[in-house]
Design a protein around this nucleic acid. Structure first.
Lengths: 219, 219
DNA sequence: CTGCTTCTGTATCGTCTGCTACAGAACGGT
DNA sequence: ACCGTTCTGTAGCAGACGATACAGAAGCAG
């Protein structure tokens, strides 16, 4: 019995004519277009021009506009997660502060459109397909859950009172992040965003006397 | 010398065939459409269907889609101002609290679309005319200035420290309002919005010892 | 009644949208 | 060399978009 053993590890070149553009680079351009114009506001002509390709190439490589957008948003989220590893901070408070400061910086970075692509996506695809809506909601819910878990960890470790309303605290900072994104799109400066962050951190819960005693004992 | 004296006070019926629809009512319908779909997301077909009229009637009464939208946003702002007279509160702190609570309620009122039309407008008209952008920016700046002035009054009256960064405080609450609008559109409950408000009010500046002494003396 | 004006409904206009049919080009396999 | 496969550019599809031309209807003035 002859069994043909394929070599799955070998990244063999695909058969037909090779693609003439860099898929990753094209996706990066598409992200910028969606970022600045939103989903519905970005036309195929905008996209193909920015990506340097023609419509058939776009459709062969990415499926359709909606699939391209989904890929763009997912990669955007990956990029943000990588460039902002706030989870590693020692305390929940430091983690939140780092997240806010890094986002304030990101939202006003002149090397790309202002604000947050995810926030743009939320509004500019409001009349679009249910699949797209679901994916965007899941992505946002995941980001929110990560923040909530980090704060919750602070409660478990005694940094925050046991009675802390973690969900409310999370919602508050998520709302602030969304608001900061809008202000940035409106042209707000990095300085003013950082001032908002400073103000928002004043809302961080003061530890109770018991918690302070515990923290002092741990130190 | 015979001078013809017109009677400008008399609301004489206009000459031609009378309009068959209520202009104000139609504008109210248009507001709802823009509110739920945004500027670019609302098509003329959507608008004429909701308003119960045909395109020529819309164009005769409102000019074009952009003019209709401008009128819609302006009337929306008037409505919100009227329904939320936060300026009358005794202290700046109470005024901000009332503003936030009323907006949290408004954004989750089921008798109309969720969130804030002005926030929708900011994003869904990003690729539109400069005139529209300018008008929207002015309207937002005016609302922001009213809030800032109320807080500034709190400083002048000694409720807040003289060194208070009024602009930063205003920016912070405006950002939170924008964020709350987005959360509401995402489906957040009134309860969670009110929890955000409560958290945000913890960021309100604590008066200095001198200010507290002054307040106690005044009472 | 006849003019004049203004609104209403039908039936489009030209443009832009997302998308694709098609023919040719560039590759690997045999 | 030849084939099958896959990509590329041109050129254009059907449909939705914002906006209008036009004819008739409904009011006033004379």
């Amino acid at each position: 019995m002859k069994t043909r053993v394929p070599r799955p590890a070998a990244p063999r070149r695909p058969r037909g004519r090779p693609r003439e553009f860099d898929r990753d680079r094209a996706l990066a351009r598409a992200i910028e277009v969606f970022w600045s114009k939103g989903y519905e506001g970005a036309s195929l002509a905008d996209l193909t021009r920015a990506m340097g390709i023609n419509p058939p190439s776009l459709y062969a490589a990415f499926g359709d506009k909606e699939s391209l957008f989904i890929e763009a948003v997912q990669r955007y989220h990956e990029n943000v997660r990588e460039s902002c590893p706030y989870q590693g901070e020692a305390t929940a408070r430091a983690a939140v502060e780092r997240l806010l400061v890094e986002l304030a910086t990101l939202f006003t970075d002149r090397s790309h459109p202002a604000g947050c692509l995810a926030v743009m996506a939320m509004i500019t695809s409001s009349t679009s397909s249910a699949r797209l809506q679901r994916m965007l909601a899941e992505e946002r819910a995941a980001a929110r859950a990560r923040l909530r878990e980090r704060i919750h960890l602070g409660v478990k470790e005694g940094e925050l009172d046991a009675g802390t309303d973690v969900a409310a605290l999370t919602d508050f900072y998520v709302a602030l992040i969304n608001g900061m994104s809008l202000q940035a799109r409106e042209g707000a400066s990095r300085k003013s965003l950082l001032a908002m962050v400073e103000t928002a951190l004043r809302a961080w819960p003061q530890p109770s006397r018991a918690a302070r005693r515990r923290a002092a004992a741990a130190a």
